[in-house]
Every structure is written in C-alpha cells, then in structure tokens.
C-alpha cells in the first residue's frame, strides 16, 4: 500500500461544525488532497469554502471543472453539482439526478474517488441525517481504501455514520475531536 493521495469526506446535518473541527486539526504540511461534500440546497450561495478556509491552514478551494487535484488542497463540492474525481486526477462535475435527495451527493464522490485512488484513499463519514455515503464507503473499502466514521454519539445527527458503520466496511470509528489529529498523524507517517 502506497502513501494516501487523497481523503474524501461526506457530511450533511451538522457538517459545517464537524468539518471546521476536522480541518482545523490538519497541519499546513498535510500531504494528501482533501475532497469534501456537504449536503446543501442547490440555490444556496457557495460560502462554504470561505467559511472553512477561516479555520484551516490548507488552501480551501471552490474548484472549476477539470481542475487538477493537488496535495495539501481542500476541494469543496459546490451546491447543485455532483463532484467526481476523473481518471487523470482532475475534478469533474455533473448535474445528474439527485442521489439520496442531494446534489452534491457523497456517494457520487466516493465511488469515483474509489475507482481512481484505490488503496491510496482514505474516506471519512461525518454527521448527517440520511444514509448517503454508506454505499460509497463500502466500495472504497472493497478497493482497499481506509475508512473512518464519526462515532454516532459524537454526531449531531447519527444516521449517516450509523448507516456507514452498518455496512461493516468502516475500519475506525472515532469521536469528532479525534478525527483530525488521527488523519494528521496517520498520513504524515505514510
């Protein structure tokens, strides 16, 4: 297993707070790219990159279509689009149907990243009120990726991590405040 090249994350209800905590714990030298999906209404203004950027030492980006995915950068899925990873490690968008009533959907990101990164991928499911991401976590696990879920007790809405854990494909269940430090340590060493 080579070093982890990318970390994908998904959250819905309570996600802003969760992402803030996780990202705040990552050092500027974090060696992998981070791609994240937060469920939000399609018409909402895309303020998330700016909000998260305030708490994070890494550059937080609202990517363009075809943008190359670089280590140490955080890519935030825009409202109204599914964000996918393409074969040449660039961002691809889609306005296909909503998945789990959401666009962006966590599963869409996770499946596409699982294909491209295989066992050089880590995936994190955070707080949320539906089961988006569970199928994606299972796929990433089958591709040899490393999978983490926020512990349901530390989640504002436990449904999403619970659904992921129920697949049996989650390698580590961690309380919210442990996730950032754990990623930082595990990936720095890899």
């Amino acid at each position: 297993m080579g070093p982890v090249k990318a970390v994908v994350m998904g959250a819905s209800w309570g996600g802003l707070n969760a992402y803030t905590q996780v990202l705040a714990a990552l050092p500027a030298s974090f060696p992998a790219a981070i791609l994240l999906v937060q469920h939000q209404h399609a018409s909402s203004e895309n303020r998330l990159p700016w909000l998260l950027g305030r708490y994070c030492d890494l550059p937080v980006i609202a990517p363009e279509d075809k943008e190359p995915i670089l280590p140490g950068h955080v890519y935030v899925a825009p409202p109204g689009y599914h964000m996918l990873v393409d074969q040449d490690e660039t961002i691809a968008f889609s306005v296909g149907k909503q998945v789990h009533f959401s666009r962006p959907s966590v599963d869409e990101l996770f499946f596409s990243a699982g294909v491209v990164y295989g066992d050089r991928l880590a995936a994190v499911i955070l707080t949320g009120a539906n089961d988006d991401g569970a199928a994606g976590i299972e796929y990433i696990h089958r591709r040899g990726g490393f999978t983490i879920a926020q512990s349901p007790v530390s989640s504002e809405a436990p449904t999403m991590p619970e659904a992921a854990i129920k697949t049996g494909a989650v390698s580590r269940v961690l309380d919210l405040e442990k996730i950032g430090p754990y990623l930082a340590e595990r990936l720095q060493g890899s």
Binding site: L84, D86, Q87, S94, E108, F111, S112
Partner: peptide, 10 residues
C-alpha cells in the same frame, strides 16, 4: 469525461 460516463454505465 470518464468519471461521469462510468457512473452512468455502472
């Protein structure tokens, strides 16, 4: 785009 076409096909 390979990523979206693959998702549609799968």
């Amino acid at each position: 785009s390979k990523a979206s076409i693959r998702r549609r096909i799968m």
